[in-house]
Structures are given as structure tokens and as C-alpha cells.
């Protein structure tokens, strides 16, 4: 559990980050909280000759709330999310999800940006961001662009982010209605056996809109548009819940691991989604 030798950089601004990235190309990587990258380096599964720590780069630790959206800097930690009462008041699902990530020690270091940008299918924030239709801000040497969370993930650890880009912030539109983040895991600190993020709105007693995303059930987070559509217009009776679950199961592609075989994961995914929908609906 000892990494290969590497150079450690702690630039003070984004220009400094890009200078190092340009000089070393693929041999350089940026690090936010380090709780995914450092273990991989210690296992010598990630070879990073030039490690760029983003801690001293300013401007990425703010949470800004305006009338229709919130903007969260990439270096905001999970603990910051949990402690931020103003943020919880407008986007309560963030806190509900953050409390289910890893353990308190990891949450003091682990960041929103790192969780999102790493592209690990086990991470909780990517599915959550897809559910909320967030936009990721990517800054590169040639400027800034936005990518929808729902378009960002291509395969495990492969995302729309270019190697010379930094994910600096996420922007989340404010939602009305009910929400839930439901996660089954083996123990504290574990990745999800299955997790579901649900945002739902009600109009005249029936479902007006629903957004559903699943975590750790494919090599990417899965935004299941069909699962949401299956609920719209209904009163969330057993038939529509079953239709939503069936649609979701059609979109996921879990693999067997120590958490269990595929049949189990699909079953649990269905149960978890159903519970998430019911809890979200009860909060509308």
C-alpha cells in the first residue's frame, strides 16, 4: 500500500494548474479530496507521476443560492453540504444523499467535484445530479463550457471531460415537490448495492413530473427517463409503480460482485426505487 514516487504540486490558481497539465499531459492528474485517487495510487492501480492538489486554488469552495438554481463549487466537501442549512432548505435531497456517502471522516475530505468527475459508477453524486438535471462547469485552457449531467458519463471512469479540463462547479435547478435518495449498502462506508434518486411533483393529486436516476447498477449512473415517464399522469398506484420499476430495470445493467448476483441486484433496485418513489411522493 505504498504508491510509486510522484511529484506533488499545489498551485495557487487555475493558470498554475493548466501550466502543469500542459507540461505533463497524461502523466499529470488533478486531485480534489483524494479519497478515490490516493487509494488507487497506493494500490499502484493508478500511476500518477505528477499529482496536482487543487486545495489552494481559490473560487471552488462556494455555495451560491439564487432564485432558480444553486451553484456548488467543486471543492465543497460532503461535510459542507451536510452542514449547510440554507442549501438544505432549498435542495434537501443533497443532504439526504451526502449523509449516505462513505463515513464522517471521508466526508470531511471528499468533495462534490471529485465524486462527480471521477466517473466511478459507485459514487452517489453522479446519479443524484442526473436526477436533478444539473449542469457541470468544465474549465479548460480554451475557456469554459457546460455539460449536462445526463450527458456526462460515457463508461466507468470515462466522462465527457477532456484531460485538460477541470470540473469547477455544478449548477442545480431548484425543484419543487417531493424528493428521496434511497440507498442500500452492506455497511457504512460501502458503495451502494442499489441506490435511487427521485424528484417528483404533484398536480391535482396526480404525478406531474418525475425524474429518476440509479446508482451502481451499470458502468455509469443511469438516468431512466422511461421510469419517470411511467409515473406521470398517474396517482402512483401499484400498476404505475410496477411500470416505473420495469422501465428502470430495462435501463440498468448490473454486474455480479461481492454484493451479490445480478438477479439480486435487480430485485433490490426495484425495491429501492419503489421505496424512493413512495417516500418522495409522501413529501409532495
Amino acid at each position: 500500500m505504498i504508491p510509486a514516487a510522484f511529484e506533488y504540486y499545489r498551485p495557487q490558481d487555475m493558470a498554475g494548474v493548466f501550466a502543469i497539465l500542459q507540461e505533463h499531459g497524461d502523466d499529470a492528474r488533478v486531485m480534489a479530496g483524494g479519497h478515490s485517487l490516493i487509494p488507487m495510487m497506493k494500490l499502484r492501480m493508478a500511476d500518477v507521476p505528477h499529482l496536482i492538489d487543487l486545495q489552494d486554488v481559490g473560487g471552488m469552495s462556494d455555495v451560491t443560492i439564487v432564485s432558480h438554481e444553486v451553484r456548488i463549487g467543486a471543492m465543497v466537501t460532503q461535510a459542507d453540504i451536510i452542514d449547510n442549512t440554507e442549501l438544505t432548505a432549498v435542495v434537501p435531497i443533497l443532504r439526504e444523499a451526502a449523509l449516505q456517502i462513505a463515513d464522517p471522516q471521508v466526508r470531511y475530505m471528499g468533495t462534490v467535484g471529485g465524486n462527480i468527475a471521477n466517473g466511478d459508477p459507485g459514487n452517489d453524486m453522479p446519479g443524484l445530479m442526473q436526477c436533478m438535471d444539473a449542469t457541470f462547469t468544465l474549465v479548460g485552457p480554451n475557456g469554459e463550457r457546460g455539460v449536462q449531467a445526463r450527458d456526462f458519463y460515457e463508461a466507468a471512469y470515462i466522462t465527457a471531460r477532456e484531460d485538460d479540463e477541470i470540473l469547477t462547479a455544478v449548477t442545480i435547478p431548484l425543484h419543487s415537490g417531493g424528493y428521496a435518495y434511497e440507498k442500500q449498502k452492506r455497511k457504512i462506508g460501502d458503495y451502494a448495492t442499489a441506490a435511487a434518486a427521485v424528484q417528483i411533483t404533484k398536480d391535482n393529486g396526480s404525478c406531474a413530473s418525475a425524474a429518476i436516476a440509479m446508482t451502481n447498477l451499470s458502468d455509469t449512473p443511469v438516468y431512466s427517463e422511461a421510469a419517470g415517464v411511467a409515473l406521470v399522469g398517474g396517482t402512483l398506484d401499484d400498476t404505475s409503480l410496477k411500470a416505473s420499476v420495469a422501465a428502470m430495470l430495462n435501463d440498468i445493467d448490473p454486474t455480479e460482485d461481492n454484493r451479490g448476483p445480478i438477479a439480486f441486484k435487480k430485485h433490490v433496485a426495484g425495491v429501492i426505487l419503489r421505496r424512493a418513489i413512495e417516500r418522495a411522493w409522501s413529501r409532495t
Partner: peptide, 11 residues
């Protein structure tokens, strides 16, 4: 008796 094996019992 972890989650999936209990599920398997029930199944």
C-alpha cells in the same frame, strides 16, 4: 447471512 444470501433464502 449477508443481504444477498438472505434474499436468496427468501427467494
Amino acid at each position: 447471512h449477508d443481504h444477498w444470501r438472505i434474499w436468496k433464502m427468501a427467494n
